Amino acid sequence: MSSTTDGKHAGAVTVLITRRVKAGHEAAFEQAMADMTAAASSFAGYLGGQLVRPEDEGSGDEANLYHVVFAFDSPEHQQGWQQSPTRSLGLAAIAPHIDGQTQRQVSGLGHWFAAPVGPKQAPPPRWKVAVVTWLGICPTVYALFLTVAPFLVDWPLLPRVMLITALVVLIMTWVVAPKLTQWLKPFLYPARMAP
């Protein structure tokens, strides 16, 4: 799979999918994923994807755990792919090759700093989103390095990074970002002056 990044897509949505592949099914799974990625690339808003193979992560419990990342330029385009018959066919082709449940995480700054309910407001400028994002991520990462990271010292680097970043996304999405958005609403969405 290829990976692309474009700074113009401030509302981009990233989907991280984790699947455990049955022993002996690796080649078939990788081919099915390549077909699915080729299909996704024809959808509006597709930015790219990446397949992380087990050999890229190490061995042991991670020996047959694959991670797939898809990115779309907006939640609407991601939903278009998510709800498409094309994706359903791809999932049907992958199903015989995986064990257990698929884990899925969705992230994106658009989910963190949604506009407040009420009259239509313009989204905040990117620099404000960047400032508020940093105000949330910096203490969150610091707290995780103090509390979680010491227990992961024996893990290979990539799984450590993946767990810490997954925790950052979860904490930001459901705890920190909603509070920051509420507390800093006047900064993100200043009241308009009456004409």
Rank of each mutant, 00 (worst) to 15 (best):
A44S: 15
E76C: 03
P54W: 00
S84G: 14
F70A: 10
Q82E: 13
L47C: 06
A93R: 14
F43Q: 08
L91P: 06
L91V: 12
G90A: 14
Q82Y: 11
E76Q: 08
Q83F: 11
G80S: 12
G58R: 00
G45N: 05
L51I: 14
G80F: 11
G48S: 04
S59H: 05
Y46D: 07
Y46L: 07
G45V: 06
A40K: 04
P75K: 06
Y66K: 01
E57Y: 00
V69Q: 11
G58Y: 00
Q83N: 15
F43K: 05
Y46E: 05
G90M: 05
G60T: 02
W81H: 11
S74R: 09
G90C: 12
F43L: 01
E76N: 08
P85M: 03
V68K: 04
D61P: 07
E57M: 09
N64V: 01
A63P: 03
P54T: 01
N64W: 00
A92D: 14
A92E: 15
A39Q: 10
Q79M: 12
H77L: 06
S59P: 01
G49C: 10
G60Y: 01
G48P: 07
P85V: 05
Y46A: 14
F72T: 10
F72M: 11
L65F: 05
S59T: 10
H67W: 04
D61I: 09
S84W: 04
G48I: 01
F72W: 15
L65M: 08
